[in-house]
Write a protein that binds this DNA or RNA. Structure first.
Length: 897
RNA sequence: GGCCGAGUGGCGGAAUUGGCAGACGCAUCGGACUUAAAAUCCGAAGUUCCGAAAGGAGCGUGCGGGUUCGAGUCCCGCCUCGGCUACCA
């Protein structure tokens, strides 16, 4: 008695697909293919915990789209691989004394087993891991592209996509070298080029965790300023780091979101992250800080000189340059604040204030970014003793240092307008600094201008009084520019990307440092030749951090670490490694051509498969991964290596699956659902179907084990609708016969085909499943079930529950897989019913039901309604004011009395 | 604090975009089959009030207003929950 036996069916069909290479995809389209479709899941990190139920959520969705699209004769690319470098593997390795290569391999094996167990139609011949040498060879190669590129912001050009744009990443050899630099010689030219590369080095503050003995990425530091792993304190240190100049692409990263098929909220998230703001840079004269009188005397001539020479590129030591989005509040600037690290502090601090200033700077320098922002409630700062001259009215105003001004944004200095900025107001109140109102709020009930941060009308602003904010901004910016005192400026919150990590388990940089005669780095670098890639990770037993910021690779064997160039220069390798993001920045390209040993991807293959048509994954990657990938892709685009400006045309974020208690799943809450357990109890088809039936893909939704039971029962019903459960073998039920469908059955079938098809197109899988349940509820009640209808249902169900569908397809007499069988089609004419029941409302309340011809005109509907006894009873003796009839929908009588 | 998203039965969720609120599933209750149970099959069910019953009347999509013949859906004002972000001048 063959009951629905998921275990037997699933292993049978998984081997079938493997043995028949059912889902192996050629880069040559099959004959008659209806175009290509590249469907991608976000790159999983193979953690030691194995798959969690969030993985199959997005992956089932993409699998449904792929299986459906193949039946629609699309040429489908659907790959899977592993993002396997990274800190968790390394930490685990250190704790257990196992090499990360081993644990990573083990984790990958677990993940692969679990993915296969779920019956996803991946082309496994395209699988790779970011830790494979012939993968990271090309990660290094792309890094060298970044190294070899500078951004020409003014370059106008038309790309292979046919669109014109300004700004292009160009080969460093095309960088114009100023004659002053050329005359200084070769080394000066090289240093000048190095300053302009998209991959460059910088002394940058990093998150140093003494307990872990490593530097952490911002994402690895908790909101409390502790390490994500182990909860150890984290402090700041200045270290020489590799940076990627993503800020050059900020404008294009915003603009080119426009044509992407992404949700508005994700686009907004990216725009906010990039954080473009428009404002002005304004120069405040400082000069001789020891005497305010002489400052006032010097101010006039300085201003006059500026009117002559204009606004300089660098303000110089005696001028303080600020960035503001509100140049219209310039008259309200009563003091200035510079970041404690600002270089001008050394020039302007007076003798009396020096000790206080240095003490403050010292305290701040030892705080992490997070400590600094943590102190947000209490404003701190110190007066430098110096004053600057307000360029609009020549008033001397005091210059303070405070950690609420960040060196990394704008110019690292602000003009403080306490009257109209919350932070400045709080600071001014703390330190008793003057507050001036210069903006009148527009509505009169809001009569207190102090603390008003919106737009209004200018007051106390000399000749500008009475101007609306917007107009004032424009006018004063023009005037400042004319006087050489300011200029329009754009700023981004986005920072350049800190790209190096002091870790072992990552891609080595393909970079040599030149050494001088004493073996010290000269600061000059050279790339590893492309034909020498990859720079393989040296085999090291000891990769445990030593409590200093030296990366583990710095004690790699000398053969790896040192070399002599052909010109005799001694070279030392870069010993930092790349962050985990590196490998996931371009993996979607490699899937299209993972065996290529001549190029990261063949240009023709790239042109054929890219961009990714559908990309599904969690919203946690809405900014970082997606922004980094887009950046790399654009650099490759500019350099002519890819043909599309964007990698991911359509993006969908799946909603998080919560535990049964409506809380986020976590080990500590004990509400984690393990896919292995669900599959062993109900089978993969039930897990897949349940995850899709839970609710809309993009919505957050709680797990319910009883819901899995429900879809499992549904699959059992489908099984019994087609299979004779009382026979000894799996045979067709006697009720399934080669008969024509009745009109009613036709209608149900075609309605189901239409609904399921449209729902899949909309990624509305939960409703698609409920349609198939309705179909099943109708047909299980029939004593004779037309075989054709059963076949059609099996085809509709196959993307969702592919194992069961294949088994039933076989029972229905088909020798071959249904994976490439044409998708059922519906006939619109079959859907039409002659008559429909519509409600009759009296004053908007349903009082009766009538049957009308589907195509009945409003007038006819009204007449039918009026002839009904029930309606007569309701409107009797009342005055009918108006009748609204919507064809095929409803009739509404508006009555009085 | 800022931005984004969401509030519909006991629960997960539907609702052709302004037209019968609660599809489908879970849980619940009743029945059939069975010696019994499991499994399966059939059926009931938003809620309050009236009625012995068939049935009838009212109320119902977080709260308060509004637009409309008609609002879960549109507009205005709030409340609650979730996510992201956090001194960006």
């Amino acid at each position: 008695m063959p009951r629905y036996d998921a275990r037997r069916i699933e292993s049978k069909w998984q081997s079938y697909w493997d043995n028949h290479r059912t889902f192996v995809t050629s880069n040559e389209p099959q004959e008659g293919a209806q175009g290509k479709l590249y469907v991608l899941d976000m790159f999983p990190y193979p953690s030691g915990d194995g798959l969690h139920v969030g993985h199959p959520e997005g992956q089932t969705a993409t699998d449904i789209v792929c299986r459906y699209s193949r039946m629609k004769e699309k040429h489908v690319l659907h790959p899977m691989g592993w993002d396997a470098f990274g800190l968790p593997a390394e930490q685990y390795a250190i704790q257990t004394g196992t090499h990360p290569r081993e644990t990573t391999q083990r984790n990958i094996d677990t993940f692969r087993r679990q993915e296969k167990m779920l019956g996803f139609s991946y082309d496994w011949t395209r699988e790779f891991s970011t830790t494979d040498e012939d993968y990271y060879r090309w990660t290094q190669w792309i890094f060298l592209q970044l190294y070899d590129t500078w951004y020409d912001a003014d370059f106008e050009w038309t790309g292979p996509d046919g669109l014109s744009r300004a700004g292009k990443g160009r080969p460093i050899s095309e960088l114009p070298i100023p004659s002053g630099v050329t005359s200084e010689g070769d080394v000066a030219v090289r240093r000048y080029q190095d300053e302009h590369r998209l991959a460059y080095q910088l002394d940058a503050p990093v998150n140093w965790c003494p307990a872990l003995g490593t530097v952490l990425a911002n994402e690895e530091v908790t909101a409390e300023g502790k390490s994500d792993r182990g909860n150890h304190p984290v402090e700041r240190r200045q270290l020489r780091q590799w940076m990627l100049r993503i800020t050059s692409y900020a404008e294009r990263l915003i603009d080119e979101l426009e044509n992407l098929d992404w949700s508005e909220s994700i686009k907004l998230l990216q725009r906010n992250w990039i954080g473009k703001s428009l404002g002005a840079e304004v120069d405040f004269y400082v000069g001789d800080v020891t005497s305010t009188e002489s400052q006032i005397m010097e101010f006039g001539p300085w201003k006059a000189a500026r009117a002559e020479v204009g606004f300089p590129e660098h303000p110089g030591d005696l001028v303080l340059r600020v960035y503001t989005t509100r140049p219209d509040t310039l008259y309200g600037a009563t003091y200035m604040v510079v970041a404690p690290e600002h270089p001008i502090v050394d020039h302007i601090t007076t003798e009396e204030q020096r000790v206080k200033v240095e003490t403050y700077r010292d305290i701040v320098s030892r705080k992490s970014d997070l400590d600094r922002t943590d102190l947000a409630k209490e404003k701190t700062g110190v007066f430098t003793g110096a004053h600057a001259m307000n360029p609009v009215n020549g008033e001397p105003i005091p210059i303070w240092i405070a950690d609420y001004v960040l060196m990394s944004y704008g110019t690292g200095a602000i003009m403080a307008v306490p009257g109209h900025d919350e932070r400045d107001l709080e600071f001014a109140r703390t330190f008793d600094l003057p507050i001036t109102a210069v903006v009148m709020p527009p509505d009169t009930d809001h009569d207190e201008p102090i603390g008003f941060v919106g737009e209004g009308t200018a007051i106390n602003s000399g000749e500008y009084d009475g101007l609306p904010t917007a107009e004032f901004k424009q006018k004063i910016t023009e005037n400042l520019a004319a006087g050489g005192l300011g200029q329009l400026a754009t700023n981004y919150r986005l920072r350049d990307w800190l790209f190096s990590r002091q870790r072992y388990w990552g891609e080595p940089f393909p970079i040599w440092h030149e050494l001088d005669d004493e073996g010290k780095p000269t600061g000059l670098t050279r790339p590893v030749a492309a034909d020498k890639l990859p720079v393989t990770l040296p085999d090291m037993e000891d990769f445990k951090p030593k409590g200093t910021p030296d990366p583990p690779l710095s004690w790699a064997p000398d053969e790896w670490l040192y070399a002599t160039a052909e010109d005799g220069t001694r070279l030392k390798r870069e010993t930092n490694s790349m962050p985990q993001w590196a490998g996931s920045c371009w993996y979607y390209l490699r899937f299209a051509d993972n065996k290529n040993s001549d190029a990261f991807i063949d240009p023709a293959v790239e042109k054929y498969w890219l961009p990714v048509d559908l990309y599904i994954g969690g919203a946690e990657h809405a900014v970082l991964h997606l922004l980094y990938s887009r950046f790399w892709h654009k650099v490759l685009f500019d350099r002519g290596h890819v043909s599309t400006p964007e990698p991911f045309q359509k993006l969908v974020n799946q909603g998080m699956i919560l535990g049964e208690n409506n809380e986020k799943m976590s080990k500590s809450r004990g509400n984690v659902v393990n896919p292995d357990d669900v599959v062993s109890q109900y089978g993969a088809d039930s897990l897949r179907l349940y995850e899709m039936f839970m609710g809309p893909l993009e919505q957050v939704k709680p797990w319910q084990m009883s819901g899995v039971e429900g879809v499992y029962r549904f699959l059992g019903r489908v099984w019994r609708m087609i299979v004779d459960e009382r026979a000894d073998d799996v045979t067709l039920s006697a009720a399934v016969q080669e008969v024509d469908l009745t009109d009613e059955q036709q209608r149900v079938l075609h309605k189901t085909i239409k609904a399921v098809t449209e729902d899949i197109d909309k990624l509305s899988f939960n409703t698609a499943i409920s349609r198939m349940m309705e179909f099943t509820n109708v047909f299980t009640q029939e004593d004779v079930r037309p075989k054709f209808a059963m076949e059609q249902l099996v085809l509709l169900l196959s993307p969702f529950a592919p194992h069961l569908a294949e088994e039933l397809w076989e029972v229905l007499g088909h020798a071959e897989t249904l994976a490439y069988n044409p998708w059922p089609e519906y006939d619109e004419s079959m859907l039409i019913e002659d008559e429909v029941e519509v409600p009759v409302q009296i004053n908007g309340k349903v009082r009766a039901k009538i049957r009308v011809p589907v195509d009945a005109k409003p007038q006819a509907m009204q007449e039918i309604a009026e002839s009904s006894d029930e309606v007569q009873k309701q409107i009797e003796g009342k005055q009918v004011v108006k009748v609204i009839a919507v064809p095929g929908r409803m009739v509404n009588f508006v009555v009085k009395g």
